[in-house]
């Protein structure tokens, strides 16, 4: 009796298939490495990767790398988010500002951010600043333009209703436009956060003392594929956690939009 309701219910859980997908890949990975068909140098076994991860963690390397990369991503992205929000709103509400900046941003947006690394190193040296700036440059234009679009899609009835209720322009901005675009802003941040992670790894590959990307490039030098796998998996897991965090925040703060 019990089983007949337990299994369908478990299978109906939205996460169950996703977890199954991950487990299947893990299983295949284990199986392939167990047969010894593939050189261990190319594909280390899950156990070897786990061991490498534990070794890094107990030596404190993993923690330091994690803190270094996460700090860079969060600083750069926070800067980008804080600049993009008012700028995007200004461009979405004011035609002159939009006409002035949109072509410029459209142009810069298509310049690959990693191509700025040499310039940033010349300008800011090899410390934290160039990495933070890279993340800033690589995400601020996308954030701004996506927020601008969200503002342009605010139904004008909502704005005009506020005006006919005696609202001022400032009140329209704070009471109508800001709450109305909140879900899209969170979604914009969630999507562009992924590029921030890409960029921090690229920046660390080029020049850094620590960080997850740096560890990967060091691992390559010593042919430690197991450590490369550790880096990749850790980056993936953190990215996923941030994504889930944004989704949770969205569900909490903008339940009306679901």
């Amino acid at each position: 009796m019990r089983e007949s309701t337990f299994w369908p219910r478990l299978l109906a859980h939205p996460w169950i298939l996703g977890i199954a997908g991950i487990l299947i890949v893990l299983l295949l990975w284990t199986a392939v490495t167990a047969t010894g068909l593939v050189d261990r140098l190319f594909l280390p076994s899950p156990a070897a990767v786990l061991a490498a991860g534990q070794a890094q963690a107990s030596a404190g390397i993993l923690g330091r790398d994690l803190v270094a990369s996460v700090t860079r991503v969060f600083t750069g992205f926070a800067l980008s988010a804080v600049v993009a929000l008012p700028l995007g709103i200004a461009m979405g509400t004011n035609r002159a500002i939009c006409q002035l900046l949109e072509p410029l941003m459209g142009l810069i947006r298509y310049m690959p951010a990693p191509a700025f690394i040499p310039l940033l190193i010349i300008y800011f040296g090899l410390e934290e600043l160039p990495k933070v700036m890279l993340i800033f440059i690589g995400t601020v234009f996308f954030n701004t333009l996506m927020i601008m679009d969200a503002v342009k899609f605010v139904p004008h009835e909502l704005v005009e209703t506020a005006l006919t209720l005696g609202g001022s322009r400032a009140q329209v901005l704070t009471r109508v436009i800001t709450p109305c675009i909140a879900p899209q802003v969170l979604d914009t941040y969630r999507i562009n956060m992924a590029s921030a992670w890409n960029l921090v790894i690229v920046a660390e590959l080029v020049a850094a003392n620590e960080g997850l990307g740096k560890r990967i490039s060091l691992a390559q030098r010593f042919l430690r594929t197991d450590e490369i796998f550790v880096g990749l998996i850790v980056i993936g897991v953190i990215g996923l956690l941030i994504d889930l965090g944004f989704r949770l925040l969205m569900r909490r703060a903008c339940s009306w939009a679901n």
Binding site: T161, G166, P179
Partner: peptide, 19 residues
């Protein structure tokens, strides 16, 4: 000279604030 609270408006399409 512009919109004001002395002239309240109801639009055809639903204009309630969804949040």
């Amino acid at each position: 000279k512009g919109p004001g609270s002395d002239r309240g408006m109801v639009f055809q399409k639903y204009s309630l604030y969804p949040w």
